[in-house]
Design a protein around this nucleic acid. Sequence first.
RNA 1: GCGGACGUAGCCGAAUUUGGUAUAGGCGCCAGACUUAGGAUCUGGUGUGCGAAAGCACAUGUGGGUUCGAGUCCCACCGUCCGCACCA
Length: 834
Amino acid sequence: MRSGSRYRKRLVLFHPHTGRRIMASYDIAAIEVKWQDRWEAAAVSRVTEGSGKPKFYNLQMYPYPSGELHMGHLRNYTYTDLLSRYKTMRGYNVLTPMGWDSFGLPAENAAIKTGVHPRDFTESRIVKMKEQLRRLGNVYDWDREVACHRPDYYRWTQWLFTRFFNEGLAYKKDAPVNWCPQDQTVLANEQVINGECERCGCEVVKRNLSQWFFKITDYAQRLLDDLDMLDKWPDRVRTMQRNWIGRSEGAQFSMDIVERPEVSIEVYTTRPDTTFGMTFVVLAPEHPLVAELTVGTEYEGPVAAFVAEVSKVSEVDRLAGGNDKQGMFLGVHATNPVNGTRMPVYIADYVLMGYGTGAIMAVPGQDQRDWDFATKYGIDIIRTVEPPADFDGEAYTGDGIAINSDFLNGMEMAEAKATIIDWFETQGKGARTVQFRLRDWLISRQRYWGCPIPIVHCGSCGAVAVPDDQLPVLLPEVDNYKPEGRSPLAAVDSFVNTTCPSCGGAATRETDTMDTFVDSSWYFLRYTDARNENEAFSRVNADYWMGIDQYIGGVEHAILHLLYARFFTKVLHDMGHVSVEEPFDALFTQGMIVKDGAKMSKSKGNVVSPDPYYERYGADAIRLYELFIGPATDDAVWNDNGVEGTSRFLDRIWRMGTGDIGTLTERAATDADAEIVKVVHRAVKKVTNDIDRFAFNTAVAALMECSNALASWMRSDEGGNQATFDEVFPMVLLVLAPMAPHMTHELWERLGNQTLLATHQWPEWDEALVAVASVTLVIQVNGKVRDRIEVPIEISEAEATEAALASPRVQAILDGAQPRKVIARPPKIVNVVI
RNA sequence: GCGGACGUAGCCGAAUUUGGUAUAGGCGCCAGACUUAGGAUCUGGUGUGCGAAAGCACAUGUGGGUUCGAGUCCCACCGUCCGCACCA
């Protein structure tokens, strides 16, 4: 890219001979600052709940305050501001707040490196980020700013935690959890991607630790069911959530152990119809019965060794084994409840303790995993579903007729399932059950820069919630931020040692902090009442603004944040704090900006800073290119020349508005004048419809086309009509304003308007002008375009046919012959078939 | 492996509603104008092949199909991306 401001350069350039200023120009920097000040002074985005207008809650996912915005980030911010300004002009009471997801590891890691307090680090970056958002021209209701690291916010995060705790929705338990050795903290399942830490990418290991969980599984069914209501969400995101929740229906039943009559094994299966085909039983290596069944036997030693071996292997490697399944016989047998068959009991690495009962009935005939294991260890295989005649696979998992299954024989899968479950239930041996893949949300973290968990551990009272009047539990100052397997808070004696709020005895504080996804699970509610000192938010305000009419963010949160926030909203609904059950009525997931084949990121070194573009082209041109770069849903490749293009377009609008293009005269309107009015009305309609469907790239294209037409009209020999220009040019400015607010505001003012453009109403188009009187009728012969004629739009089928056949081109091809068939679809097309 | 999305000029992309003018708009490129100069601005051109032109033929990943007509619908394949991945 070239350096130096084009606009500044133009300001000093004049034609050397004529003295005429040869370049339309304006001091873009001065105009930007001027209007940013005006918007602030006019408080265009400060809203109250008491407006008579319909409300519109416009929200983007609040960002981590990194301090450095790059072109990839700006796309998102441009969309939000565009929508904010557009909806305001459309007459809505628009809430567009902004805040900071300001707890988290970057600030803490910086503190470890440089010693600067995470709070100071974070606050300074917030200041920088706000400057950058202002520079882009974005307007927010800053009176509602929230930052989750500030005590006036996390006080209420803690308050919410204690509500969850009191309801039994927050609990502490010992469990094998995901431990990230790099970040020295535990992670939620949702934060482990293919066995790796979502943040740092290093391999996660399992550790048995006592951790805090939120009981999101209590809400699994509702979280699943209500996805159906979210019809303004991308299907993709809903599907991902459905899969993550992972509901399955089946049966649970127990089996007696032949050698140990006092012991029975519970199994869960989604294929109870295949129970007659069960030839062995498998326990997960971590299953509690493993030790019990082998203690004192010859199997005890080898099995213990095997279990130790398996637990050493990371989950990734364990799953990476694919078809090579490792297992071991336990020396005992189980009885198949449906036919009394005696079957060996194994442990195997392919059965997971965390799902179902941690034990399975193995049916190799109908399950490929069981097939693999059975063939490896020489176990019987019985088919109980008749495979299709042409089936040449191993296990057959599809639907079919039950065979070798006694009273199920001849039934199809669904009927067989229902029948056997009824049988289990009447025999009292088992029951119909539902399983979810979703696990409870692990929220404790062994890190400093997060919200302290407001719990006191008392020797006699157990875990006690910190009472409301003692909130917030402030983050203590620490000497060392470095995590060493436990929270840095644990090293602060004055923090740890306290008294029990319940009995007054000596007690210790919980030293873990919360996952930052807890903070972000309710911030949108705080925005509705951000300065409330007595409550997290008032129900009146929350009910006025919720649900969020448009939520914009990255698809990377499809499961994490979006699932947690839905969970929180449902809990708060159930507690009576808010009426809605779903927070986000409409969700839009925008694509990323890609450069050199990767998402822009500091670590990849492919970040494009907006600074030089601000210098040379200004905020409006950047915004416009962010909109124009491609479909909003798709990833887009950054093109250094793109801003040049949108800048040229803006420049043309500017020169048109300041009389530097063509001529305008006072005269009676001509056909060309009438036509340009139509062109503008059509553009207004298209821009409006395109914004409504998030097709910003085509909205910009429509305006470019419109401005090209305007310029040609003004440059034509007869020039443009002043009255016509005065009628249509402001319309163009108005619809361009949400995209390029600075320049349009300036021109709007220079055209003599007293009112602020930002609060002016959106222009209406006249359908009569949008409608076309005549169209091009395409005449095809055998599907190939052979002629085009102008016809009135209301042309009849007969007239169109006649006109087509009268075409000299068609006549020439027909050469006197009769067409076999004529298909007329007036006024668009006639196809003559010969 | 399973599921989903996508594949259009040199590049990014358009073709909304119901199958009906494929390639809008931008970038880039070529030529010209104004110029001491142009990296500004303006004018014209720009899918491929044949042709002086009119025009003709061929082009939406590949191959089939449905249809008067397919970028759009159906089938198979190739490629790219995303999600899930021993969840019983």
